[in-house]
Amino acid sequence: MGKQDLIEALYGSLGESCVTDPEVAHVEIHGNEVLGLHLVSGLEVEADSRPEGIEVEIRVRAGARIEKPVRICFGLMPESGMQRISMRTRVAEEARVAILASCTFPNALDVLHEMEADIEIGTGAEYLYLERHVHGPEGGVRVIPKATVNLGEGARFRTDFELLRGRAGDIDIDYGATCGAHSVLELAARISARGDDRIRIHEKAELAGEAARGVLTTNIAVREQATAEIKNTMIASAAYARGHVDCKEIIRDQAVAHAIPIVEVRHPQAHVTHEAAIGSVDSKQLETLMSRGLDEDQATDLIIEGLLSPAYRSQG
């Protein structure tokens, strides 16, 4: 299959067409090979393909405003294989960029996707990273994203991990962030798992600078024999730092969910809250929908759809 055919297959698996707008920067990576790259002013991307993986460096110049979200499409079309990405991102002072990253493994039976990200966000800069996954129906994928994030003074970073379609497989997320003064951090994940899927999310944020703010939100639905382990750690070590940890897990059947919120406050003028709820769906929500004629399964599915929706708001 030629490069263009592979690009079309990757976007096709997402239900989309190839990016044609010249004002939209985009990168397509299949396995450990860069298939396509298109840049816009203010954005620099270098990608180096090697047999053991890809090294990608993304730089957004100081003050640059990338108006349209950058599209990055990672994927692997065959049933088996490996994709290993080392990504270094530098968003310079007062720059602003949003990246919509799609990760598609629609036929996966034995696929490994590893991502190791090192992210620096400069003073006053803004970085939004939306990660949308499409997996195959068999759950034969291991997804292992790790990220280290440093936010400068007044910087903003938001990331949102969502499984759009397919079985979760084995997802192992490990993010760590250090937040400078007046910076804002939001880490969110929304995943539904079934069968023998396994979800493990470890997120740790340190609100190190004065008046730094952070929210860790995790919404998980597990059913059948799936398992989820969520460990969110929020450390506030500066005056006026404000943090919130919000973990909701709905379980059904024989699924098992663990939530371990860790809150550590090291300054008397800092404040961190946490909320964790694990269990079946709320009975009042369920009975409300059933009183409109939905059966129990339909009502449960709709409640879970809300929990996993982008419209869900953290209580923090």
Partner: peptide, 8 residues
């Protein structure tokens, strides 16, 4: 009435 977080 119940609240339905995330449900439109």
């Amino acid at each position: 009435p119940a609240r339905f977080e995330g449900l439109t």
